[in-house]
Design a protein around this nucleic acid. Sequence first.
DNA 1: TGGCTCGGAAGGCTTACGTCA
DNA 2: AGTGACGTAAGCCTTCCGAGC
Length: 290
Amino acid sequence: MDEKDDDGLSLGLSLRLGCGENENNRHPFNMHNPPQPVADQRASFNNLFHFHDRSSEMQSLLQGIDMNMEPVCNEENGVSSPNSTISSISGKRAEREGNGDENERESCSRGGSDDEGGGDGDGDNSRKKLRLSKEQALVLEETFKEHNTLNPKQKQALAKQLNLRPRQVEVWFQNRRARTKLKQTEVDCEYWKRYCENLSEENRRLQKEVQELRALKLSPQVYMNMNPPTTLTMCPSCERVTVSSTSSSSSAITSSSSPMANRNLFGPPIHRPMPVNPWAAMSIQRHALP
DNA sequence: TGGCTCGGAAGGCTTACGTCA
DNA sequence: AGTGACGTAAGCCTTCCGAGC
C-alpha cells in the first residue's frame, strides 16, 4: 500500500499541491510562483477529512441516501442507481486492486457472474455504461470540492455511502481531476493569449512614446526646461519605485506619487488578476485582464 | 437517424516508496 | 550504512464507447 502515513485510525487524505484543481485562488501565472510540474506535486496531508464531520448542507445532500446501507453489489442488483447499469470488472486495474477492495469485488463478482450469465450475453468484453444518479454526483462533487483525492479508507467509505464500488469512486475522481485540469488548461491558454495581446499593445504604446521622447530630445530648447537626470530604482522586495535626482537634494518619492506608479518596470504586473478555478470560471466571468 | 457531447471505464505509463540482497 | 534491483500501489494520460440530446 502507498498509505504509509495512514495510521489506520484517522481518515487521511492525499492531496495534490500546486496544480490547483482544488485551489480556488490558484494563480498559475504568477511569475514569482510559477506553476509546478504536475508529476511531482503529490503530497499527503493527514487528518484533513472526516466524512462524519461534514457540514449540515452536505448532510442534507446525503439525506436521499441511506448512509447505513451496506454496499450492494451492483451486479446483483443490476443497477448501481435508479438510472444506471454497471460495467464489467476486468483488466489490470481489477487485478491490482488492493485488499481493501478485494472482498467487495469478490462478492460482487459472484453476483456479476450471475448477471453476466443472464444479462446481455456479451460477457466481460462489454463496457456496460452507468450513469450516476444526481444524488451520487452531488455527493461526489461536494467531496471533490473539499479534496480531489481520496485514500483507500475514504474511498471505501464514500463508496459505501453512495452504494457504489470503490473502483467507481476512484474512476470518478480520476476523471474529475483530468477534466478539471483540462478546463484549467483552456482557461490558462485563453489568459495567456490575451496577456500576449496586451503586451503587444503595451509594446506599441511604449515605442510610440520613445519616438516622441526622441523628437523632444532633438529640439534644443527642451533641454533648457528639463529637470536634471533622474534614476528610477525599484525595491525588489516591496516593489516600490523610487525616483531619485542626481543633483537635487534627496528628492526621492515613492511610486505612489510617481508618474511611474502604475508601471511595473521589471516584468509583468505582480498583482495581475489571474485565472480562477475553472469550474468557478464557468459561472463567474473572468477578472478583467490587464 | 446521424452527429455531437458528456462522462464512465480501461489500459499503459510514470512515480514514489518499501523490501531485500 | 549505502545502494541498486525489484515489486507494489497510486495517479495521470489517452482512448474507447455507451448514453443522452
